[in-house]
């Protein structure tokens, strides 16, 4: 498979009045053409910051990429000029944000917002841009596109606005679509529609998708590969099957156990992960999950574990993988589908 994007040892910090926040601490992953990679984690795990770094959209100041490379089509986006980033944003990499209610300009018609990027990137005239925008509105399943084209965002429902966002992000036919919690703010029924729409479009356009989410249900539905983030680091990554059925990291276990399932008996309680995520003002030297991990050893608090290759596609960063560690007999009860 053709490799499209490679993120290598990415570090992002935010300067605040209380000190430096190390939001992303050495994240590496790859994205292949046409696939969907899900980045999963709770809020504050650094998943959104990672996504915004790829677009170089972290607000700066206070945010800054301090280390690492983001390779895209042979260029390092960390080093790319502002001008070059303008050419890449919106044309080669598109984004959908979490809240469709606030992510559209309230004072510009929906049609104009879609056309705007097209005219700027593809140097086409208004007429062609309008044709393309209408085509996109039709593609994302908006009824009466000719009429809707001239309406303002407040005249659309949440689901419809997210469709507009998708149309906008895909209008220039980007290679990568970054979807940052695209369904979190939507009703459950609408969520399914939007996910289905994204999959359909992906089939047609072969766009690679980076899906940022905290919802494992969404991951199971659409992603091929998963990266689990915790405390600014990727703790486990692999194909969906591997991470869901043969997960190796206690945090992933916790995530799985805290997720409600259809086949669950009523009296069977959900297991929340005790504790709170680490404070990234002053990150612990060891594994970020150590404080909350039921299997934590002394070493876990002191030193970050190396990444272990479980299979060619499955990697995990946990001291339990070390031969010297006491083996854990945790039957993984996860049964998602």
């Amino acid at each position: 498979m053709a490799r499209l994007l490679e993120v290598d040892n990415l570090h992002v910090t935010f300067e605040t009045y209380a000190g430096k926040v190390h939001a992303v601490r050495g994240v590496s992953f790859t994205l292949n053409k046409g696939e969907t990679l899900a980045i999963v984690g709770e809020s504050g795990s650094g998943k959104s910051v990672t996504a915004q770094s790829i677009m170089r959209l972290i607000p700066s100041p206070p945010g800054k990429i301090t280390e690492g490379r983001i390779l895209f089509e042979g260029d390092d986006l960390v080093q790319a000029s502002k001008k070059k980033m303008l050419r890449i944003r919106g044309s080669k990499i598109g984004v959908i944000f979490q809240d469709p209610m606030t992510s559209l300009n309230p004072t510009m018609t929906v049609g104009k917002q879609i056309m705007e990027g097209l005219i700027w990137h593809q140097k086409i005239n208004r007429h062609e841009a309008q044709k393309r925008a209408l085509e996109m509105l039709r593609l994302v399943g908006i009824p009466n596109p000719e009429q809707r084209f001239h309406q303002y965002p407040h005249e659309f429902s949440g689901g419809m606005r997210q469709r507009v966002m998708i149309a906008m992000a895909l209008a220039s036919d980007p290679k990568i679509l970054i979807a940052d919690e695209p369904t979190t703010a939507l009703d459950v029924t609408i969520q399914a529609q939007i996910l289905e729409l994204m999959q359909e479009i992906q089939k047609e356009t072969e766009t690679a998708i980076i899906l940022i989410t905290h919802d494992l249900g969404v991951v199971a539905e659409v992603a091929q590969r998963v990266a689990v983030m915790y405390g600014g680091k990727i703790v486990e990554t692999g194909e969906v099957e591997e991470v869901f059925y043969r997960s190796r990291h206690p945090y992933t276990w916790g995530l799985m156990a805290s997720m409600p399932r259809l086949d669950q008996r009523r009296d069977q309680e959900l297991e929340p992960i005790p504790g709170t995520p680490p404070d990234l003002y002053d990150p612990p030297p060891g594994c970020p999950f150590a404080d909350r991990c039921p299997y934590a050893m002394f070493i876990c608090h002191e030193q970050m574990p190396e990444t272990t290759q479980v299979s060619p596609t499955h990697q995990v960063a946990c001291w339990l993988e070390d031969p010297r560690a006491t083996p854990v007999n945790k039957e993984v009860k996860v049964n998602i589908r």
Binding site: L57, D99, L104, N105, W120, M168
Partner: peptide, 26 residues
């Protein structure tokens, strides 16, 4: 600080256009 300004930036619009068409207007 609004989300839609981030959207406009994510479209790759040059800062001048983001200002005139998205920030100023609102």
């Amino acid at each position: 600080g609004q989300d839609y300004i981030r959207t406009a930036q994510a479209k790759g619009l040059p800062p001048v256009r983001v200002f005139t068409h998205h920030i100023l207007r609102n």
